[in-house]
C-alpha cells in the first residue's frame, strides 16, 4: 500500500511538465551521443565488415536501414498509443504530450520504411510497389500517423484533441499485429521475418550485428528527437503557467 503510494508519488512527480522539462533537456545529449555511437558502429559493420549476400549481392545492404526504420515505425506506434492511453485514462498532461511528440517521428520511420522498401523491391523483386499485405498494412500505418497528427491539429482545445487522438491511436493498434504477421497469414511477395523471438536468426553473424546496431541507432535517435519535440510542446501548451514564466526569467538571467 505504501509502496504503491510512493510509486504513484514518483510517477506524478515526473509526470509533471515542470519537472520533466529540465530533465528532458539533460537527457537529449545522452541519446544524441548514443545514436551517433551506434550509428557509426552499425554503418561500419554494415558497409565494411558484413559480407556479400549469396543471392542479393551488395543490394541486400539496404537491410541496414530498411529493417531498423520498419521496426521503429511499429514500435513507436505502440509506445505512442500507450502514452495516449495513459493520458486518456489517468488524465496526465505529459503523457498526451509524449504521444503527440512521437507521432511525427513514427510517421518519418514509416515513410523511410516504405521508401527504402521501394528502393529494395525494384532491383530484387522487379517492382517498386505491389499491393501485398505487408506493404499495404505498412502504408496504412503511415496514414494512421498522418491521421493522428491531422486530427490533433484540427482541434483547438488541447484536452479534446488529446482525447480524440488517443481513441484513433488505440483503435489503430490493431494494425500492428497485422503488419507483423501479414507474411505468415497471407501469400505475400515480401519474405518472412529473418529475425524473430521464436527461431534462430536466418542471417550471418556480422550482418545481424550490423542490423541490430543500426536498430539501436534509430531507437536512440527517435528518443532524442521525441524529447526535443516534447519540450517544444510543453512550452507551447504550458506558456501561461507560473513555472514557464519563472523558467524564462531564469534563462534571461543566465543569458545576461
Amino acid at each position: 500500500m505504501t509502496t504503491t503510494n510512493r510509486l504513484s508519488q514518483i510517477f506524478y512527480h515526473y509526470a509533471s511538465p515542470a519537472t520533466f522539462y529540465p530533465l528532458a533537456g539533460k537527457m537529449i545529449p545522452v541519446f544524441v551521443v548514443l545514436a551517433a555511437l551506434f550509428g557509426i558502429a552499425g554503418l561500419w559493420i554494415g558497409l565494411f565488415v558484413a559480407p556479400t549476400d549469396f543471392q542479393q549481392g551488395e543490394g541486400y545492404r539496404i537491410i541496414f536501414v530498411h529493417v531498423p526504420s520498419s521496426w521503429m515505425s511499429m514500435f513507436i506506434y505502440c509506445v505512442m498509443a500507450l502514452w495516449a492511453g495513459i493520458g486518456l485514462t489517468m488524465n496526465t498532461r505529459l503523457s498526451s504530450m509524449m504521444a503527440q511528440a512521437l507521432a511525427p517521428t513514427g510517421a518519418l520511420m514509416a515513410a523511410l520504411s516504405l521508401i527504402t522498401g521501394a528502393l529494395w523491391g525494384k532491383p530484387m523483386w522487379g517492382t517498386w510497389w505491389v499491393w501485398d499485405a505487408r506493404l499495404t498494412s505498412e502504408l496504412i500505418l503511415f496514414f494512421l500517423y498522418i491521421g493522428f497528427i491531422a486530427l490533433q491539429a484540427s482541434i483547438d482545445d488541447p484536452r479534446r484533441a488529446d482525447k480524440a487522438g488517443a481513441i484513433l491511436a488505440l483503435v489503430g493498434v490493431v494494425n500492428i499485429p497485422i503488419i507483423y504477421f501479414s507474411v505468415t497469414w497471407w501469400n505475400t511477395l515480401h519474405q518472412g521475418a529473418s529475425v524473430s523471438l521464436t527461431k534462430a536468426p536466418a542471417m550471418a553473424q556480422t550482418m545481424l550485428w550490423g542490423m541490430l546496431l543500426m536498430a539501436l541507432c534509430f531507437w536512440m535517435y527517435s528518443i532524442a528527437v521525441a524529447l526535443i519535440r516534447v519540450r517544444a510542446i510543453i512550452l507551447e501548451r504550458e506558456r501561461h503557467t507560473e513555472w514557464v514564466k519563472q523558467l524564462l526569467a531564469g534563462e534571461k538571467h543566465a543569458g545576461a
Binding site: T52, F54, T127, L189, Q191, G192
Partner: peptide, 16 residues
Amino acid sequence: EVLAKHDENYMPPEAQ
C-alpha cells in the same frame, strides 16, 4: 509481369 520472390535468409556465398 514477373516478380522474383526471395526468402529471408542472408548469408555469404561461401556459407551457401
